[in-house]
């Protein structure tokens, strides 16, 4: 199979399936090297930075020998290079070690937190895309109106509000004053007694304010990208040509403007998704949600070395996957972009 790409009106760029596969394999290899370097640097840096995870076992009520024993158990008494090679050997076998705090395998702990973050971030990114897109189209149809300007100004205002300010404001308004949403948490205390749909609605009720907090700035940013992209396309001569040919405005928007304007959005959405999957610390803390952000920060503050590596590795992997997804979607919309990837 061959993929034909219009490079210019005169020249046709042909990419074979083999070339495409090779390009993706090359990127995959680069990603692996990036991850390896990332994990190796973090491994060394956290051990060289001040702080010792066994010091929490030193207290007036505990024996000084305990901290020594635990240090030996976690190989912290060994040179960093020896610890590093042991870590590499275990990592190859899929074992990232045991969390010092949780006393459970790192991957198990990470998965417990990541599963929430995956759902939360995916919902947020969908909301951001849907709302920003709908808003941009709504505004595009009302060019040079007060509404157009008002929406643009308001989006800038929303974008500039720090998430902790927005989160606290939403809690004050909707939880304290109006008593409509819960202040924090992921589910009600009587969650187990609810029906299946009751459980779904209960979680949606709990996640409403956190999702608004997490998605507001992203929605405003995406809106800006889409709107600017659409404005650019709408000023192209071929749009004028289509209009003069009597093509309906709705068709122009759907078939010509949106596909051409969406590319920058997808790139940014890929990065945004990767960032969100790495953890949304402020929103997680304000609303007491069990996400990767809190896990990562706590692991750093308590010097839980294996867990720090697990969190960083997870964040790195999701960032790479999110960017891959963004590239694939972009190419689906605009095959010309494949050339850039192959180069």
């Amino acid at each position: 199979m061959e993929i034909a790409i219009k490079n210019s009106p005169e020249k046709l760029f042909i990419a074979t399936e083999k070339q495409t596969g090779k390009a993706f394999a090359k990127r995959f290899l680069t990603s692996l090297i990036t991850l390896f370097l990332l994990v190796s640097l973090i491994f060394v840096f956290v051990r060289l930075s001040p702080g010792d995870p066994t010091k929490k076992y030193v207290s007036a009520q505990l024996s000084p020998e305990l901290s020594q024993k635990i240090s030996e158990k976690f190989m912290l008494d060994k040179p960093v290079i020896e610890q590093y090679f042991a870590f590499l050997l275990n990592s190859v076998k899929g074992d990232l070690g045991v969390s010092y705090n949780f006393r459970q395998p790192v991957m198990k702990v990470v998965w417990e937190y990541f599963s929430f973050t995956l759902v939360f971030s995916t919902l947020s990114i969908f909301l951001q895309i849907i709302f920003s897109f709908s808003l941009a189209i709504f505004v595009a149809r009302r060019k040079n109106t007060f509404l157009n300007k008002a929406v643009s100004d308001f989006s800038l205002f929303i974008y500039s509000i720090p998430s902790f300010v927005l989160g606290v404001f939403l809690i004050y308004l909707f939880s304290v004053v109006l008593n409509l949403f819960p202040i924090s948490g992921l589910k009600s205390l009587d969650y187990d007694s609810f029906s299946f749909w009751g459980k779904i609605l209960d979680q949606a009720w709990h996640l409403a304010l956190p999702l608004i907090t997490l998605s507001a700035a992203g929605t405003a940013m995406f809106y800006k990208y889409i709107k600017e992209g659409m404005d650019d396309v709408l000023h192209q001569s071929y749009i004028l040509n289509l209009r003069s040919s009597g093509v309906k405005e709705k068709v122009i928007l759907k078939k010509h403007v949106i596909p051409n304007a969406i590319s920058p959005l997808i790139s940014v959405a890929g990065i945004e998704l990767g960032v969100l999957l790495g953890g949304a610390l402020i929103t997680e803390v304000i609303f007491s949600l069990p996400g990767m952000g809190r896990l990562t920060v706590n692991s750093i503050l308590t010097r839980d070395y294996p867990l720090i590596i697990g969190c960083v590795l997870t964040a790195g992997i999701v960032m790479i996957i999110a960017n891959y997804l963004a590239d694939i979607i972009k190419i689906k919309f605009d095959k010309r972009l494949l050339k850039g990837l192959l180069n």
């Binding site: 304290v176 202040i183 924090s184 007491s288």
Partner: peptide, 20 residues
């Protein structure tokens, strides 16, 4: 006896005032 985990101090104070 339910121990409710909430890392945010302000949130806990609000819940205390509201009887949560």
């Amino acid at each position: 006896i339910i121990f409710k985990v909430d890392p945010d101090y302000t949130s806990k104070i609000i819940q205390l005032k509201k009887g949560k």
